[in-house]
Nucleic acid binder design. Structure first.
Length: 423
RNA sequence: AACCGGAAAGUG
């Protein structure tokens, strides 16, 4: 059962929960009694596959049938719920744990929900939960702090994050680690303060905290997003020369994306080759950036060749890849091809998302093809896709451009009636 | 053998 548990965990981590259940079947067939580890791995597999409802049902069945669950089982399911933003259900599971006697929540469980609350912007609820865990005798650890600090940074409150960092430094029990510093460095970069980010980087080194590949990747991204491609490349060369950390696909993809956005496709492709020569495989993000770069410059042959190369490496395009393609076609005014792409996706059994429709609707509006735009608008409704401010703005813009102000006003009212706030 | 925080790609 130990071996099968390991196998099960492996297949679930490969995102093949279907195989996971096959293994589970094998366990039952062989007459082994599945244990908590097995159930937990399966729940995790379902969660990773975004099948949270199934995970919840499975968990309930397991409990009903009297199999033992422990704090890790709960934590796993709670994590899945938080990942899709369902902190309400996560909190009710937490209450269930608190009221029972068998598995009281531990710090990791609280941390998971604190993170979930931060990710949907409920910072004060997150902080509240920290006080609550302390009252209940669960001590916050470095991850608790790291979670809050990351949440504050995502809200743009780097000062608040720095204040928490100073608080940690005073506490012997949880000294800040690389993740904590990196989260704040990232926040500072996003706020446009590269200087302060670099200062904090120096500070962490001075204090004896070793930066890792994510820290360096964050700085490289900071340079890229500020348009400082040279700075990013310079840092990459320094990492190589001084062997500061092993490079990875994220580091390269960050810079490749910048080069693509600069329109420097030759340099992008040469860095892409360099990456594979260094034994690092590209992923869907790397390929999507390249596809975007080539399509913005109308190099459709290259787009196709990159796309083919991606597929030949066994990497499937995702919703973002398709949208990058769609947007490239739309921006070039190739609405006919763009529409074909949408159709092709539907035939492939993919479900185009709102980004897809919004781009194409906008393209039709810019060409004054309001009928086509409206047809898609209705299709979105029929497919249950949320129409947001972007959708309405595109259409309003279209009607304004062809002087149908009354139609534009109607849409504006319709948008407000749907509870959408114009920006 | 199973659980928690930090970096890269998309729409007006």
């Amino acid at each position: 059962i130990h071996t099968l548990g390991t196998l099960l965990n492996c297949v679930c981590h490969l995102n093949r929960v279907d195989f996971g259940f096959a293994v589970f079947g094998g366990i039952l067939k062989r007459g082994f009694k599945p244990n908590t580890v097995v159930f937990t791995a399966l729940i995790k597999g379902l969660c990773m596959d975004e099948k949270i409802n199934q995970a919840t049902k499975f968990f309930e069945n397991v409990v009903e049938m009297g199999y033992p669950c422990n704090v890790i089982t709960y934590a796993t399911l709670i994590h899945g719920l938080c990942k899709i933003g369902n902190t309400g259900k996560a909190l009710s599971l937490l209450r269930e744990m608190e009221s029972g006697n068998t598995c009281k929540p531990d710090t990791a469980v609280y941390n998971t929900i604190i993170d979930g609350l931060c990710k949907i912007g409920l910072m004060s609820e997150a902080v509240e939960l920290v006080s609550e865990m302390v009252e209940k005798g669960c001590l916050p650890n470095v991850i608790t702090y790291g979670t809050l600090i990351s949440g504050l940074c995502k809200m743009g409150d780097t000062d608040g994050a720095l204040a928490l960092l100073r608080e940690m430094e005073k506490e012997e029990r949880c000294k800040p680690d690389a993740a904590v510093y990196t989260a704040i460095i990232d926040g500072l970069c996003r706020g446009g303060s590269m200087e302060r980010a670099m200062d904090l980087f120096s500070e962490m080194v001075e204090k004896g905290c070793l930066p890792d590949v994510i820290t360096y990747g964050t700085l490289i991204n900071g340079h890229c997003k500020m348009g400082n491609t040279e700075g990013a490349l310079g840092l990459l060369r320094e990492l190589e020369k001084r062997r500061l950390c092993p490079l990875n696909v994220t580091i390269y993809s960050t810079i490749i994306d910048r080069l693509c956005k600069n329109g420097s496709m030759n340099e992008a492709m040469s860095l892409f080759s360099e990456m594979s020569n260094n034994g690092i495989s590209a992923n869907v993000v790397t390929f999507s950036s390249l596809i975007g770069g080539f399509s913005t410059s109308g190099q459709w042959r290259e787009v196709i060749s990159v796309f083919d190369e991606m597929v030949s490496q066994g990497i499937s395009p995702n919703a973002i890849t398709f949208h990058i393609l769609m947007d490239g076609l739309c921006k070039e005014g190739m609405t006919l091809e763009a529409h074909k792409l949408l159709e092709a996706m539907i035939q492939r059994g993919e479900e185009p998302d709102a980004f897809m429709y919004n781009s194409l609707i906008n393209a039709y509006c810019l060409k004054g093809q309001m009928d086509d735009a409206l047809r898609l608008f209705d299709t979105m409704e029929a497919r249950g896709l949320g129409k947001d401010g972007v959708t309405y703005t595109a259409l309003i813009n279209g009607y304004c451009k062809c002087s149908q102000i009354d139609e534009a006003m109607k849409l504006f009212q319709g948008m407000r009636q749907k509870g959408l706030v114009p920006d």
